[in-house]
């Protein structure tokens, strides 16, 4: 985590760039992003819409290839989907024609293996979905769908969990609840988590470090340490330190624009 660390980081993103070929020409989505994620660390990536957060995450998952640069897991470059990497997608991404049990079983069907039934049962209990196995996604609330998606991702016991704006579509109360749930699960059994969000509050609540991306093309603008103790209560979230950190990140993202147009307000 600190500079000069000699051990191999869990995840290393090195000069990652990605160009998309679109009908209207080439689109540089991310440009020379570099940062490390240590084992069992939670790192959030925040940035404005369209700054390449999802692109970065999909590249880390091996779903997309980079145009240049390297992303390495335990020192080995990621070239395709990796069994050690679990993904929680935007808006749950459950298969609507399968009930919850069948959705959680889906990865194992693809791989042709058997799930660890005890572990899945434990996870379902942990997220409060006992007895919902026969329900179809449309019968569940957004929060419950996302809980199921988390169970699906964790059922494979990945050592890295990539979460792509998982709670972006939820109302703020459900979102707070889900954030606490992620922290609890992490405290139970620490894993490496990379969490994409456009909510600075969510990033600070969950993360050990926050990587701030600039508007497109996404570049690493700044990396903040979030040194608050866990579990993070709402009291901690209401302290001046958190408030100052939130404002600092906000200024990194939209600061220039505000500072130029309304300097007095931005300082307040």
């Amino acid at each position: 985590m600190t500079a000069g660390d000699t051990t191999t980081p869990k995840l290393r993103v090195q000069a990652a760039s990605k160009v998309y070929q679109t009908a209207s020409g080439n689109l540089l989505a991310i440009d020379g992003c570099s940062f490390d994620v240590a084992a069992n660390e939670i790192v959030s990536i925040v940035g404005p819409s369209g700054c390449g957060k999802t692109t970065l995450l999909w590249s880390m998952s091996g779903l997309h290839s980079l145009s240049s640069g390297v992303i390495a897991l335990d020192g080995k470059p990621i070239t395709g989907p990796h069994p050690d990497i679990g993904i929680v997608f935007q808006e749950a991404n459950l298969l609507p024609w399968r009930n919850l049990d069948a959705n959680i079983n889906f990865p194992f069907e693809i791989k042709g293996t058997q799930p660890d039934k005890q572990w899945v049962k434990h996870l379902l209990h942990r997220v409060g979905l006992d007895g919902f196995g026969g329900k179809f996604p449309r019968e569940l609330s957004g929060g419950m769908q996302q809980r199921a998606a988390i169970v699906r991702a964790l059922s494979l016991k990945p050592s890295v969990l990539l979460m792509d704006e998982p709670f972006g579509a939820l109302d703020s109360f459900t979102r707070d609840e889900m954030n606490r749930l992620v922290e609890e699960i992490w405290l139970d059994a620490p894993t490496t988590i990379v969490f994409i969000t456009h909510s600075i509050e969510e990033a600070i609540f969950l993360s050990d470090r926050v990587v701030v991306l600039s508007p497109r093309p996404g570049r690493v603008a700044k990396i903040y340490d979030v040194p608050f103790p866990r579990p993070r209560s709402f009291e901690i979230m209401a302290t001046k330190e958190v408030f100052d950190l939130t404002n600092a990140i906000k200024l990194d993202i939209v600061g220039d624009r505000i500072a130029k147009s309304r300097p007095a307000e931005a300082v307040q």
């Binding site: 999909w58 998952s61 091996g62 779903l63 395709g80 989907p81 069994p83 990497i85 993904i87 997608f89 935007q90 808006e91 991404n93 298969l95 024609w97 889906f106 990865p107 069907e109 693809i110 791989k111 494979l156």
Partner: peptide, 26 residues
Amino acid sequence: AKIALARSYGASTLQIFWKIRAPMAL
């Protein structure tokens, strides 16, 4: 997104067809 989900578990083209495309087209 659903195809990416299947691919993230290493699904083959045939698996993607039978487990994602076909049920979606049903």
